[in-house]
């Protein structure tokens, strides 16, 4: 019924084979190219990946160093601040004990000599012997008796609140010289603090 030409059938097969062969070659070649490309891409990515990997590592290391610095820095500062506060506490205690001792010190003996030196110092600095001297209630008698050695000096009827020593004013009221023990301590406080701190082993 369906009789084909023998040549036609053979030719078709050959053609099909040829097409199949070509396709196979194409596919194989494509696969090879794709493989090569992939291999090339992989090869190309390695240095990029390595660079990326190194960057991530180095960024991480930097970040870690930064955080370490932050933690160490604030811990150091906190510890130092606590030490400072403890030291200041101790210095204050020493100070207040010393001030108590000064306030309750005996006013006899050398104390009148100290007052005399203080008045001499004040008259010299003010440049006048016409002065009014003020002191606290406790030292009033000692100062009064010392003033007899200073003509031109008079005692103020007022008293001041201080540990000891005197405040000297020129009679015209223009100049005042504070030579109380409080003022002298205040002026020397930084040096005294240093001295006390060195006893605790700080600032040596």
């Amino acid at each position: 019924m369906d009789e084909r030409h023998p040549l036609a059938s053979n030719s078709l097969e050959v053609t099909i084979d040829k097409i199949l062969k070509n396709t196979e070659n194409d596919v194989l070649s494509n696969i090879k190219t794709a493989l090569d490309d992939s291999q090339q891409n992989l090869d190309d990515s390695v240095p990029k990946l390595e660079a990326e990997y190194d960057k991530i590592l180095s960024d991480g290391k930097k970040e870690a160093e930064k955080i370490e610095k932050q933690i160490m820095g604030s811990a150091d500062i906190e510890a130092r601040n606590k030490q400072l506060m403890a030291l200041e506490d101790a210095v204050d205690k020493v100070f207040s004990k010393a001030l108590d001792q000064i306030a309750n010190a005996d006013r006899s003996g050398d104390y009148s000599n100290l007052i005399k030196t203080m008045i001499e110092e004040a008259t010299q600095i003010l440049g006048t012997s016409e002065i009014t001297v003020t002191t606290n209630a406790k030292d009033k008698d000692v100062v009064q008796s010392t003033l007899s050695q200073f003509p031109g000096a008079e005692m103020s009827p007022d008293t001041i609140d201080c540990l000891g020593g005197i405040v000297v004013k020129s009679k015209d009221g223009a100049m005042t010289f504070d030579n109380t023990i409080d003022a002298r301590i205040e002026r020397l406080k930084p040096l005294i603090r240093k001295e006390i701190a060195s006893k605790f082993g700080v600032g040596e």
Binding site: M175, T176, L188
Partner: peptide, 12 residues
């Protein structure tokens, strides 16, 4: 630094 302080003036 000395224990001596300065003079206080009140004539401004």
């Amino acid at each position: 630094m000395t224990a001596e302080g300065g003079v206080q003036y009140s004539k401004i």
